[in-house]
Design a protein around this nucleic acid. Structure first.
Length: 469
RNA sequence: GGUCCCAUCGUCUAGCGGUUAGGACGCGGCCCUCUCAAGGCUGAAACCCGGGUUCGAUUCCCGGUGGGACCGCCA
């Protein structure tokens, strides 16, 4: 009697490619909804297309989910393994007269569609075998089609879009079983969602039209109808469909670009869902707040500037040693791999408070910190090259003896630099910028004197002497 | 072409009949400052168009326009 009324949701990607940003958001919404309601989040791999499904894609999806921090309940369901069950449902429908055999060949159907298009008619299966005696087909191959209602309407009650009404005569009799006896996606989703006890179907809006068709099967089987929530799609920065042209669509590509999983969760959540004016929303907070009602109805575009800004925020919130570990891992993945010495790691961690304040991505953080994990005179970047004019180099040369005579602490170095600047009628910047260029090879860095103190007297002087002229 | 969905600053969005139309990113200015960030203050920036309904429409209805999705023996 104590029936479990907790929601059951699922993410059901097809393993024909990597986990892209839209799929990741769908997965996130499902995950969040399950967490928020104390429900169950299931993962089902829709691999009924044997031609296009690959183990590599399954791997990529699983890795993407793991990186995003989205874990699911129970075993991963592989849809193709359930083909027998799908077939049985189709047979039952056939036996009950709610489905029928269609002997039309693919070539014949192509011809039909071409003719419809030429005549400016809607392209749909014309039901040519709907009321025909299957005996006429003889022993030729056939597909099994649903015998849908051809009058009245089918209404999809969608939580985000409202009631969406379809005229049944617009819906054609879709294929349940292919001529080789394998189930199609339309049949498989419905059967699996039912068997898995799915109560809420949260998926991309590209499935909205399918919902009406799937409802026909659900109705024919007399099964309960799940709650639908079709989430508007994500477009590229130019408003067009998200495509490979925009690059960096796989969730793993975002990792390679140096974005943090918590950034992705926050960004993706806000792309299409809102909670008043809140922008920075931790995952824990999202679990408290998430609901289906606040999902927006309109499609959204990716905005990398905002993603960067958010990532900067989460980088600043991340512990210094964690960031060091990320950089170490990132450098190890590089070709050729760069392995950091223990002292280098220590310097990195110590400098991290100043470093992370300035970075938008892990990649940026890593390159901005290169002067801490490689020794010797710097290779100047273009801006630093411009700073180190002959004039600047001579200032550098004159500063050198002053620094050499100074106690090597951040405080003392700054004091020395300040009095030197004052004595020479320079601003502190006039002295500091050449120093910074020589020390870091860049024109921007964490506070210079802290950096110098961290690097130590020996290493700092080596770098300074290389450019003192 | 058919069906369906969508429409507030450049972008993400709040708004749920009466608001100086709010926030965030980005952009400009100022402050802070050894650089760059971060932070603070501040400025410019939007209700797609046309009809209704209403005392009153960004908000409700209809039409148009503009985007988008789907129309496979793919999922």
């Amino acid at each position: 009697m104590t029936e479990n009324k907790k929601p059951v949701v699922r993410f059901a990607p097809s393993p024909t490619g990597y986990l892209h940003i839209g799929g990741a958001r769908t997965a996130l919404f499902n995950w969040l909804f399950a967490k928020a309601t104390g429900g169950t989040f299931l993962l089902r791999i829709e691999d009924t297309d044997r031609e296009r499904s690959t183990p590599e894609a399954v791997e990529a999806i699983l890795n993407g989910m793991a990186w995003m921090g989205l874990d699911w309940d129970g075993q991963t369901v592989y849809q193709f393994a359930r083909a027998g069950r799908h077939r049985a449902v189709a047979q039952q429908l056939l036996a009950e007269g709610k489905a029928y055999r269609c002997f039309a060949t693919p070539a014949e159907l192509d011809e039909m569609r071409a003719a419809q298009k030429a005549a400016g008619k809607p392209m749909k299966y014309d039901g040519r075998w709907r009321d025909r005696d299957p005996a006429e087909g003889g022993d030729k191959p056939y597909v099994v089609r649903i015998k849908g209602r051809d009058t009245g309407t089918t209404v999809v009650n969608d939580v985000v879009l409202g009631d969406v009404v379809f005229q049944n005569d617009q819906l054609d009799d879709m294929i349940l079983l292919r001529s080789d006896g394998t189930p199609t996606y339309m049949l498989a989703v419905v059967v699996d969602d039912h068997d898995m006890g799915v109560t809420h179907v949260i998926r991309g809006a590209d499935h909205l039209n399918n919902a009406a068709r799937q409802l026909q099967i659900i109705e024919a089987m007399g099964w309960p109808v799940p709650v639908y929530a079709h989430v508007p799609l994500i477009h590229g920065p130019d408003g067009a469909k998200l495509s490979k042209r925009h690059g960096a669509l796989a969730v793993e590509a975002y990792r390679e670009m140096g974005y943090l999983p918590e950034t992705m969760r926050n960004y993706l959540l806000r792309l299409g869902w809102s909670h008043g004016d809140d922008e920075i929303i931790s995952t824990a907070q999202a679990i408290q707040w998430f609901n289906l009602e606040n999902i927006g109805k309109s499609p959204a575009r990716m905005d990398f500037k905002k993603l960067d800004n958010l990532n900067g925020h989460y980088i600043r919130e991340t512990a210094d040693y964690t960031l060091t570990a990320e950089i170490v891992a990132l450098l190890a993945r590089q070709t050729p791999p760069h392995v950091l010495t223990e002292p280098a790691r220590e310097r990195l961690t110590k400098a991290m408070p100043g470093l992370k304040e300035r970075a938008k991505t892990l990649v940026e953080l890593s390159s901005a910190a290169d002067f801490l994990y490689t020794d010797g005179p710097r290779a100047l970047d273009a801006a630093a090259e411009k700073v180190l004019t002959p004039d600047a180099r001579s200032t550098l040369a004159r500063t050198l003896p002053v620094l050499e005579a100074t106690d090597w602490s951040s405080q003392a170095l700054e004091t020395a630099a300040r009095s030197f600047a004052e004595a020479n009628g320079l601003k502190l910047g006039g002295v500091a910028q050449p120093l910074r260029a020589a020390i870091t090879g860049k024109t921007t860095s964490p506070p210079l004197f802290e950096v110098m103190a961290l690097l130590g007297r020996e290493e700092s002087l080596i770098r300074l002497r290389a450019f003192a002229g």
